[in-house]
Every structure is written in structure tokens, then in C-alpha cells.
Write a protein that binds this DNA or RNA. Structure first.
Lengths: 106, 106
DNA sequence: TCCTAGGTATGATTTGCATCATACCTGGGC
DNA sequence: GCCCAGGTATGATGCAAATCATACCTAGGA
């Protein structure tokens, strides 16, 4: 696991929100890509999921008509212990969903 | 502590190297800014220290003629438990110093 | 005072990234 | 077959960030 890729992936609010929501679900349920309330259009969302996938932060499964993501929790916990805890705690305190961070073109 | 700022700060290899080296020193000794072997010129180094400082990852003390940085370990551990451990382990495996990551203008 | 050395501030340049619009693909329903 | 809906791929655009060169500041030594 490349820490650089991981931190670059988690530097974005939308991506951090995705991982945080997955991490906050202790049952590790698979979620549809569209089920995340992200303030971006489809294409950008696809981009974010790609970055997260390449950083090893999510697994993505193709349904043909749609696709779903899930959290490789054990893998992450083994290589980056404590990380998911940080993310889900940020989610609870409302920082990531509050949209206080970076937004580029808008 | 803003997780966005922290991750953005640690997304850069040079900055991650600085924090990792500080974290790897269990005695938390203060280090001169110039003592880090970073592949950038003076001005860029100053920039990196500024980013780390604003993310709360280092403390910086001005000597007039020079300046030194140290690690607010307790503060970081309290807000981001486990993070310093990740960084210092990456350092031991040689990833951050190996310059495999991002370089912009060169 | 002059020179040297470490840091900082500023301006310019370049690269990377986030975003969008658009077009395309796939599967389901009619 | 046709249309719709969810995702993806591509190209363009704009902003942020990383870097450098240069100039400047501060402290120490000759």
C-alpha cells in the first residue's frame, strides 16, 4: 500500500466522505455508487471512485447496469491501522459532509 | 484538527518524509530545517514547512539566523492516534525517501 | 563593514487535479 | 426496437499546488 496514494486520495472531501461512510457501517455492506450524496456530477464521481480504488480504499463491483462499492476493511486495518477510525469519527462530527473544505472549479 | 489539511499536507512525499523522520525519533528532538535531505531548493522547503505548520504537524521555532522544527507528538496522538506510527513505518521501509511519488516542475 | 549561511517573501512557470459537458455503453421496461 | 437510468471515457477548463530564480533579512565571523 502506497501511503502517498492513500493520502492523496483522502485529501479530497468527497472521497473522504465516501470512505468514512463505508467505514462507519460496521456491517461492511456494499453500497451503490449513486447512494452517496456527493456535490458533484456523474463524471466526477466516477473519477473519485477510480482514485479510491487505485489507492486500495474501496473495492468496486460491476453490475453491468450499475456498480457498487465496498470497504476492504481487513486489508486497510492491516496496513493502515487506525485510519478508518479517524475517518468515521470525522464523519460523526460532521466535518466532511459539511463541505467546508476544498472545491476547485465551480 | 482538520483532517483535510492533514491529508493534503501528508500527500506530498517531501512533507511526509519530514514528519516521518520527526516521528521516528522517540526523543522528539528539535531538528534544524536544513537537516532534512529534501530534493528541493530552499524556497520550496520553506513552503513545505509552512504547509506542515498550518496543518498542525510540526512546530517551528525561529532562531533568527536559522529555524528548527519539532513534533507536537502528544497533540497529534490525541487527535490522530496511529498516524505517526504509520509514517515512521513507511520511513523504515524506505518508501518516502525513495522518491517514487510526485514531483511537479523539475 | 564585508562576506557567508540559513530562512523567508515574491513573482513566474509548470504540473496536477477537480470539475463539467458531451458522447458512449449496458441493462431493464415498454 | 425505443427510451431511460446508472456508469464510464474523453476533452476542455479553471484552480490549486509545487517548484524555481531572485531578492531580501538576520546572525556570526573576519
Amino acid at each position: 500500500m502506497d501511503l502517498g496514494k492513500v493520502f492523496r486520495a483522502l485529501a479530497d472531501d468527497s472521497r473522504r466522505q465516501v470512505v468514512a461512510e463505508l467505514a462507519a457501517d460496521t456491517e461492511d455492506r456494499e453500497r451503490a455508487c449513486g447512494s452517496f450524496d456527493l456535490p458533484v456530477k456523474k463524471a466526477a464521481r466516477t473519477h473519485h471512485f477510480r482514485v479510491l480504488r487505485e489507492a486500495g480504499m474501496i473495492m468496486q463491483r460491476d453490475h453491468g447496469n450499475g456498480s457498487a462499492v465496498s470497504l476492504p476493511r481487513q486489508d486497510i486495518e492491516r496496513h493502515l491501522p487506525g485510519l478508518l477510525q479517524l475517518l468515521s469519527e470525522e464523519l460523526k462530527s460532521g466535518s466532511a459532509t459539511g463541505r467546508t473544505g476544498n472545491t476547485a472549479a465551480g
